[in-house]
Design a protein around this nucleic acid. Structure first.
Length: 432
RNA sequence: GGAGAGGUGGCUGAGUGGUCGAAAGCGGCUUCCUGCUAAGAAGUUGUAUGGUCAAAAGCUGUACCGAGAGUUCGAAUCUCUCCCUCUCCGCCA
């Protein structure tokens, strides 16, 4: 959420910044509620003040006997009026909070204008595109090689759930370990958080209250299946005050992720690109405000390093204001090459949230000089989405004979296997 | 799931219905002292929000002792409900 003081004092600038996003966000209703709230608050406080005065009179035994009855009556009056005011106050506060939590972050000045992904700016291209004649889609290769079983995934759950079979399961697990090891080596401390989180977490990182329909929820327990490890990891230090000396903090985490993909009907219906459940290794940073810009560049590099180690061609794009997520102040997407689609597809999203999430989640640090606690900055990036990585490995590594050459970096994680061959007969079940 | 104990500031931990934003200790900050370090002495130190002020400081109002409701002129303190934590028992990978 945005700094209320900033909204009050630099209304115009905030409005301008928000106008760059899609969705017609405006802070006018919030300011209106703020005004109302302050008015009610002033009246309410005046009543409290008077009733405190009255009890002081009793306390000191100052109240003359003949006054006591009058004072008691006055208190009763105050109580009645206060209850009315409290009712109004509560209503305003509810609306205010909802408004406040529903306004997205302001884009960084460095973020380009634009309505959607067509206005994103390519800032970097890495790797040579493989030369493949009539490339097959990852899902075709995967079916041939016994990596995916889409039909049985649907049988077990519903559409957009997939079973990984045999080498598919092994590569997925290898990728998870490979990525965690890689980030661990760069100072990201590994964590394995709960996969179900409470509502406060979801509000803290900005998923709620705005996007209620996008997530899986356990109704009986008011718990949500995490849509990304960002949620539990960023909330690790919610309502805490960290020491400046301990910052920045780097974490990496593997979790499965669950998204309802509301509104994604018809998109990527085939294959392993868009699933309701997918695995991801996430990298998360808690940084000092003055260094978050630099940390963002480094974090993006750390995600890119995974693609490079896996020999996957990619590009980095700077998202335009209209394409950025709700909480982001600035965001780079990494897009990996899919030969059969003949295009780059998102595989990582690296964001700097500024203090936006920190305000929501009350994440603060105590400055080294002992001053008042300040909000820190949060950042995160996929490092990487594992399912899409697997798909990209299949497509980019496909050979004329139908096999798939696996990235060298992964071989030690696969017991020395260098190629994915067509399913051997010994396999108990042939995937469809 | 059953029984019991408990939730107080950055942390530990006192708290009699009014003198309690709250003892004490730790930690932090400032100053002093010892050649440095260690140790010591004194002082200071919660958060949010409003007013006063050009602004800061200062002064000052209000709220906050897990959450909500109640009793009372007045609640950290008494009552009720809920949430959470801990201990023991049961169950369980």
């Amino acid at each position: 959420m945005l700094d209320l003081k900033l909204i009050r004092e630099e209304t115009e600038q905030v409005e301008k910044a928000l106008a760059r996003r899609n969705g017609g966000f405006t802070i006018a209703p919030l300011l209106e509620l703020d005004k109302d709230h302050r008015k009610v608050l002033a009246d309410w406080e005046a009543l409290n003040r008077r009733s405190n005065e009255i009890s002081d009179l009793f306390k000191m035994g100052k109240a003359a006997k003949e006054e006591i009855e009058a004072l008691r009556n006055e208190t009763k009056e105050i109580k009645k009026r206060r209850e009315e005011l409290e009712q109004t106050k509560r209503e305003i506060e509810e609306k205010f909070t909802l408004q406040q939590l529903s306004i997205p972050n302001t884009p960084d000045p460095a973020v380009p204008d634009g309505p959607d992904e067509t206005a994103n700016v390519e800032v970097k291209v890495w790797g040579e595109l493989p030369k493949i004649v009539n490339p097959k889609h990852h899902y075709e290769l995967g079916a041939d090689l016994g990596v995916f079983d889409f039909e049985r995934g649907v049988k077990l759950a519903e559409s957009r759930f997939t079973v990984l079979m045999h080498m598919g399961a092994r590569i997925e697990r290898a990728l998870m370990n490979f990525m965690l090891d890689m980030h661990g080596g760069k100072g990201y401390q590994e964590v394995f958080p709960p996969i179900l989180v409470n509502r406060d977490c979801m509000i803290g990182t900005g998923q709620l209250p705005k996007f209620e329909g996008d997530f899986y929820k356990c109704v009986d327990d008011e718990l949500y299946l995490v849509p990304t490890a960002e949620v539990p990891v960023t909330n690790l230090y919610r309502d805490e005050i960290l020491e400046e000396a301990n910052l920045p903090i780097y974490h990496c985490a593997y979790t499965p992720n669950f998204r309802r993909e509301a509104g994604a009907a018809g998109k990527d219906t085939r294959g392993y690109i868009r699933q309701h459940q997918f695995n991801k290794v996430e990298i998360v940073k808690f940084a000092l405000p003055e260094s978050s810009e630099e940390e963002h560049e480094k974090l993006t590099r750390d995600a890119e390093a995974v693609l490079e180690a896996l020999e996957l061609p990619y590009r980095r794009v700077l998202l335009c204001a209209g394409d950025m997520g709700f909480c982001a102040r600035k965001c780079y997407d990494l897009e990996v090459w899919f030969p059969a689609q003949d295009k780059y597809r998102e595989i990582s999203s690296c964001s700097n949230f500024g203090d936006f999430q920190a305000r929501r989640a009350n994440l603060r640090y105590r400055p080294a000089d002992g001053g008042k606690p300040k909000y820190l900055h949060t950042l995160n990036g996929s490092g990487l989405a594992i399912g899409r990585t697997l798909a990209a490995i299949l497509e980019n590594g496909q050979q004329p004979d139908g096999s798939v050459k696996l990235p060298k970096a992964l071989v030690p994680y696969l017991g020395g296997i260098t190629h994915l061959q067509k399913q051997e007969k010994s396999s108990p079940v042939e995937a469809k």
